[in-house]
Write a protein that binds this DNA or RNA. Structure first.
Lengths: 226, 226
DNA sequence: ATGCTGTAGACTGTCGACAATCGACAAAAA
DNA sequence: TTTTTGTCGATTGTCGACAGTCTACAGCAT
């Protein structure tokens, strides 16, 4: 068979998928703000599709918990109260702690620690240049790596759902996050605890780490009126 | 305004919701078995609705992870491999352990212990009569109560997703579960640890409890061919 | 004024029909 | 025979139109 190197996979995703991705991204990036309503007719004509695939996309966003639909009243982007964010970060903490325990129990501590250290190195480089966005991106990779190495698909899928909201929260509050280099160092202490296979300490450190990140976000968060 | 006691709320749920509930129940009870395919046209005429609400219901089941859809190839009930079940039970264990920690940290140990003890009493009564189904139902209430008292809505919604699959697994394997009375006693030791505010022990006990329940299910589980 | 009733407009919920895609098998080409 | 191409039937993906439901406001009666 002829192999044409200039030809790539053309986009075969269904309209539902494409609309879903667009909407999700819009919510995560804060382009669609909490409380804003999604009118099917408007969005459909905006995307140039009919209402059917658009409705299906909205249903999925509903199941993911990013929007809320009241029958015959329309769909709105879910509002984020302080309590929601606290819950978000404590659930996140639970998952990462569990993952670390799994990693150590499965004897993968040194392997994972190595991978994490490499990530930290990149983070440090970005931190030195004060590239906040880059640091955030690498930070996500760091935590994704921890979860992935628990080798538990169910955990991973729950995690994906949770991190979507974390990203949303962070973009609604493009925060300074304090001293970037200090943050990187915090990550390294976690890596060290994992490498030492010290479950209790590693879990403690990750709890503190996530907890203080959450506190920073929650600090001065404006409650939405109900 | 006149109050008519013989009049109740009539069912106003949308077709999508009703179809969704029916399908979900069918999957949970094992009426729809893993691997079975859901043909939109057939189901729609079976329910007496058009394909639109049916498709929306299927999309939600997809997001919940109960079914799998291949584009243009149809939807099938997700197969359950041994690994899936192990993951299910370990995630469940993580959640309950976290919930217990939260309950104790929030100083609600005695309140919750009291409620749990009452549930155990009912369980014991059902166990003495060897009413397996009843014991299972109360067992669910017991664990739901633990989660609910963590007072974390995000945790609760993740929990609901997880327990749906637990129910599915259990109905696919209408298990004996060993000695019913012994099980009830296990629950009581957990309650005692909570009441004593002994986080480490309570978490350890719940891990063992869930773990052994999972082992019983996994034991002799037939792997589905892929 | 106050409270009920009924319309209007906007939006969501549902439907039936049509288009697109796939696997399998038959037909044609090598 | 082996490989490629065309066609068919089944099923999903998408569309435009219509029906149902809600809120707000106007009109009417008290």
């Amino acid at each position: 068979m002829a192999k044409l190197k200039s030809i790539g996979q053309i986009n075969t995703k269904s309209l539902r998928e494409r609309v879903l991705d667009s909407l999700r991204t819009a919510i995560i990036t804060g382009e669609l703000k909490p409380g804003e309503t999604l009118v099917e007719t408007d969005l459909a004509s905006q995307f140039g599709v009919s209402r059917a695939p658009l409705r299906e996309a909205i249903n999925i966003l509903n199941a993911e918990g990013l929007v809320e639909t009241l029958p015959y009243h329309g769909t709105t982007v879910k509002k984020l109260a302080r309590k929601d964010i606290e819950e978000l970060y404590s659930v996140r903490s639970m998952m990462e702690g569990f993952a670390i325990q799994r990693i150590i129990d499965n004897g993968r501590a040194s392997t994972v620690a190595e991978a994490l250290r490499a990530i930290c190195q990149k983070m440090l480089a970005a931190a030195e240049k004060d590239r906040l966005i880059e640091v955030n991106r690498i930070d996500r990779v760091f935590h994704d790596t921890i979860i992935a190495n628990a080798q538990n698909q169910l955990l991973t899928s729950l995690w994906n759902n949770v991190t979507i909201r974390v990203q949303q929260v962070m973009s609604l509050r493009n925060q300074s996050k304090g001293d970037l280099q200090q943050i990187t160092l915090n990550h390294l202490t976690i890596v060290a605890a994992i490498e030492a296979e010290n479950v209790v300490e590693a879990v403690q450190l990750i709890n503190d780490h996530i907890g203080s990140a959450g506190d920073l976000i929650v600090e001065g968060w404006e409650e939405p009126e109900p």
